[in-house]
């Protein structure tokens, strides 16, 4: 059944069936409805953008997917089954990694140690076996370190691997955060404004990395971004939000020509 939905994009990537399906999600903070009855899906191997003006509810949506917020209504379907309410750490263990709009790194640790935390899920969980089978633990450590180093090489941050993250400039922090998320080898990667506050060159680098990740590892990516040029270049499909509502959903071209979307971005008065 999934195969029937498969298709190949113009640039030769294969997009599969639905990985994540959001059904009628409503999220409220007290009286504020941050998300109003929104449904959309994310398909395997695609880059799905979520756009919209400030305060539209984009980050809230990502927080619902990653379990940081619990919606009052609606269901999250992951890999073909409805997901029971989950804590963020449980969602992460299911293979959904994320970055944050305001960067959440372990500032006191080195870049390498930060990336290594992304590997925690691959380390044996039992303290006692770990201390008893010291050689086994050493081998496991080595493998995970090698995986972390591969991600570090991939994102071209070898030069700063030993630097404490707290000392890095903003643009590099964003990249380290992406590295940590990638180290987990996620099935679904959620990026909240990965290029915010970057200069043109940094944005180009980041765009390239996102495309490469998607291309080389086939990672499904959902990303929030304000820069329209970037969104149109990167994404296969776009969801547009405004005031907590979904006002558009489709390919970049479809969305660009959608009158509601144009109105929202031109600031046409809401009635």
């Amino acid at each position: 059944m999934l195969d029937a939905e498969r298709y190949v994009t113009a640039d030769g990537r294969t997009i599969g069936g639905t990985v994540l399906d959001l059904r009628n999600i409503t999220l409220r903070f007290g009286g504020v409805e941050a998300i109003k009855d929104i449904s959309f899906d994310i398909r395997e191997g695609e880059i799905r953008a979520i756009i919209g003006p400030n305060g539209a509810g984009k980050s809230s949506m990502l927080n619902v997917i990653s379990g940081f917020y619990v919606p009052q209504e609606g269901e999250v379907w992951f890999r073909g089954a409805p997901r029971p309410p989950m804590k963020p750490y449980q969602v992460a263990r299911q293979g959904i990694a994320r970055t944050f709009q305001n960067i959440a790194l372990f500032e006191g640790m080195s870049v390498l140690d930060n990336v290594m935390t992304g590997r925690l899920g691959y380390m044996s969980s039992n303290l006692f076996t770990q201390s008893l089978w010291w050689t086994g633990a050493a081998k496991e450590e080595e493998e995970n370190r090698a995986a972390a180093e591969r991600v570090i090489d991939f994102l071209e941050i070898q030069a700063i691997r030993k630097t404490p993250v707290g000392r890095l400039p903003y643009g590099l922090k964003k990249r380290v955060e992406l590295a940590r998320a990638l180290a987990a080898e996620p099935k679904l990667l959620l990026l909240d404004e990965p290029m915010a506050g970057m200069n043109v060159e940094e944005k180009e680098d980041m765009s390239r990395f996102i495309l490469d990740v998607n291309d080389e590892f086939g990672t499904t990516i959902a990303l929030i971004e304000h820069d329209m040029g970037v969104v149109m270049d990167l994404s296969d499909r776009v969801v547009v939000m405004d005031y907590g509502r979904k006002i558009g959903d489709g390919t970049p071209d479809e969305v660009r020509n959608n009158q509601d979307v144009i109105d929202a971005y031109l600031g046409v008065a809401h009635d």
């Binding site: 990653s66 944050f100 380390m123």
Partner: peptide, 18 residues
């Protein structure tokens, strides 16, 4: 490692499955 991560940043720790 998880303990050091939590000591450093709760939100980040959650996001890596701790």
């Amino acid at each position: 490692r998880a303990l050091r991560a939590v000591a450093d940043d709760h939100q980040a720790a959650l996001s890596v499955g701790i």
